[in-house]
Write a protein that binds this DNA or RNA. Sequence first.
DNA 1: CTGAATCCGCAGTGATACTG
DNA 2: CAGTATCACTGCGGATTCAG
Lengths: 147, 147
Amino acid sequence: MSASKLGATRTDVRANVRRVPGPCAHWGDQDADFIREILDLVGDKWSVLIIGTLADGPTRYSDLAYAIPRISQRMLTLTLKHLQRSGLVDRTAYPEVPPRVEYALTDLGTSLLSTVLALAAWSSDHHAEIRHHQTAFDAAGAPRNAS
Amino acid sequence: MSASKLGATRTDVRANVRRVPGPCAHWGDQDADFIREILDLVGDKWSVLIIGTLADGPTRYSDLAYAIPRISQRMLTLTLKHLQRSGLVDRTAYPEVPPRVEYALTDLGTSLLSTVLALAAWSSDHHAEIRHHQTAFDAAGAPRNAS
DNA sequence: CTGAATCCGCAGTGATACTG
DNA sequence: CAGTATCACTGCGGATTCAG
């Protein structure tokens, strides 16, 4: 509703003619918010890496830290908590003398894994091509130091 | 190599025993960088929305601004440039008196679209469940103002 | 071992105004 | 119409230190 209000507020000049009535053909106005919601969840720096690592089975905190070399304790803990909060991972603490905590993917998390894996596959398939495009683009527009 | 160096640097206590030798079973150490690369590209606030809108066919700048209500000119221009730089969208300027510029998805962009659409579908399917988990989690841990 | 707490730089984002 | 330029703000994310 916020969209229709905003859209009507700005002006109605295009209300009679122009195409592109709504956001897009693939999702509605509020669907966009859902996507953003998921993107905020997995679009950050570490979530996907953690999910991928957790796919191998329940993993201890320190093992996660080892499996994802450049992550800081802060981000590991924080991201883990976010994922747990959203029901993607499950935390199990064992009341032992040397504290032991295991994190595991929930069913929900596993279902997201397949989608994320598809994205990972696409990344591997096209990263070279993207790199190439970026280099060509930079060579065409960036060199203001040339000449 | 940076990973192995870092891993070796921190200590070698676990080098002999512990499992979880590499990052994870689904992608290698550098594959993680590819994923991050793509995530940096589409994980931002607007890329996915733009890609989705562009899926309907070539779209003009102002139509994009209208289709994505809350986006600022700055972000629209900037995100568009990022996507163009990576070869996901194609920019075509028509040298007319009233300037007209159309943006369209490239083949590369279209191939990403299907993957992104899968993520969007997942979002729609599970956003309610996620919301529920979040609420429950907050109710259990957050209320330090209760009682 | 598994965190929590703090300080802090900086990149991402938005609002506004200006240009061709 | 289609951008560009500038300023200011916010929160992410890293490094470090403390605690159970």
